[in-house]
């Protein structure tokens, strides 16, 4: 079946190449929303190979990208008005930076792909443009040695491509820098929310089981008075870690994500205290302080993986320091919860 983003074919040196549209249509936008929410995320990809954008010739630029369709769409959209070649590597449907970290957007794959499409027979120059973040997987000097092509690292963001070309293939400071704006962070939240679902369900299950305990025995009949509010409290703690922490990231105190998560947990805990005001006994209130803190702190740590500035050494240190604290908090919270039920 012909893909919708392919508008025709173009012939150069007796070879035929598919020509891609630089306009995104409704299915592309819908697809993007779907993968952000985790649907079809593993199979959202395009066929690797060489594509034509506009009407390229033998002297046109070659842009290299990943075969994650979300990435591919961003690149072709930003090549509007440019005649060029788009060399799509097989990154198994993963974005450039992640794939570069894994090595699938790497020297080997790039060299292999340049050879398999016989790039030297299509263009007369020796210049290929890579997204800067591909540098984590590609050694430019090795590509040069193995294929003769010079790797030019372009901007981080596809939206800077036309400025990069206009500035004679120079990426300025701003183009080279990775940012992490509120919009960037918001786009990542849905997937993170779904990623941690087993932690959420696990914590909910444990707390629900405890909610039935009372001095008179175990009963789960009082859902609206006991079980329901418990599930809701665990949920807001998770929400604090997974949603509030990324949103408020630069404004939460501390550099450790665990600390930031703990503080956003405390924000919702304050709300919890106001709503439940003195309906619960003191021990139960204190037990919730520990449980909400543990849940929000632990789940916030998860965002290190989505963030654009945390190092492996740093996250290792953070986990060594905070995972024992989180486990202690959860344990103390559970013990106090049971005590609160029995007094």
């Amino acid at each position: 079946m012909k893909s919708k983003y392919i508008t025709g074919n173009i012939k150069v040196n007796d070879l035929v190449f598919p020509q891609v549209s630089t306009e995104l249509k409704t299915p592309d936008f819908l697809g993007a929303v779907m993968v952000r929410w985790g649907f079809n995320r593993d199979r959202y990809l395009v066929s690797p190979g060489l594509y034509a954008v506009g009407s390229p010739g033998t002297d046109s630029d070659v842009f290299v990208t990943a075969n994650y369709k979300l990435t591919f769409d961003q690149v072709r959209r930003n090549l509007s008005g440019i005649d060029g070649w788009l060399l799509v590597l097989d990154t198994r449907g993963v974005n450039v930076w992640c794939a570069a970290g894994k090595g699938t957007f790497g020297t080997e794959e790039l060299v292999k792909r340049i050879k398999s499409v016989s790039l030297e027979k299509i263009v007369t120059h020796k210049r290929i443009i890579l997204p800067q973040l591909g540098a984590t997987g590609v050694a430019a000097y090795r590509v040069k040695a193995e294929t003769g092509f010079n790797v030019h690292y372009g901007p981080v963001r596809a939206s800077d491509i036309s400025k990069f070309i206009h500035d004679r293939y120079r990426a300025d400071r701003d183009m080279r820098k990775v940012k992490f704006s509120l919009t960037d962070r918001m786009k990542l939240i849905p997937n993170d929310f779904l990623y941690g679902k087993f932690y959420l369900l696990g914590a909910m299950l444990v707390m629900y089981m405890l909610s039935g305990i009372s001095a008179r025995g175990i009963s789960y009949r009082d859902f609206s008075g006991q079980g329901g509010p418990v599930l809701l409290t665990v949920f807001i703690a998770y929400f604090a870690g997974i949603v509030l922490t990324p949103l408020l990231l630069p404004f939460l105190p501390g550099r450790y994500f665990s600390m930031k998560g703990f503080f956003s947990g405390m924000l919702v805990f304050l709300g919890f205290l106001i709503i439940t005001s003195s309906k619960l006994n003191m021990v139960t209130d204190i037990s919730w302080f520990f449980i909400v803190g543990a849940v929000s702190s632990f789940t916030a740590m998860n965002f290190t993986g989505s963030s654009t500035y945390t190092s492996l050494s740093g996250v290792r240190k953070e986990m060594k320091l905070f995972v024992p604290v989180q486990i202690s908090f959860a344990t103390i919270g559970i013990i106090l919860q049971v005590i609160g039920k029995l007094i």
Binding site: D42, R92, N95, C98, K102, N191, N302, G305, S306
Partner: peptide, 10 residues
């Protein structure tokens, strides 16, 4: 787990 499996990462 970015490659072909569920992930939140990167």
């Amino acid at each position: 787990g970015c490659s072909g499996s569920k992930s939140n990462c990167c």
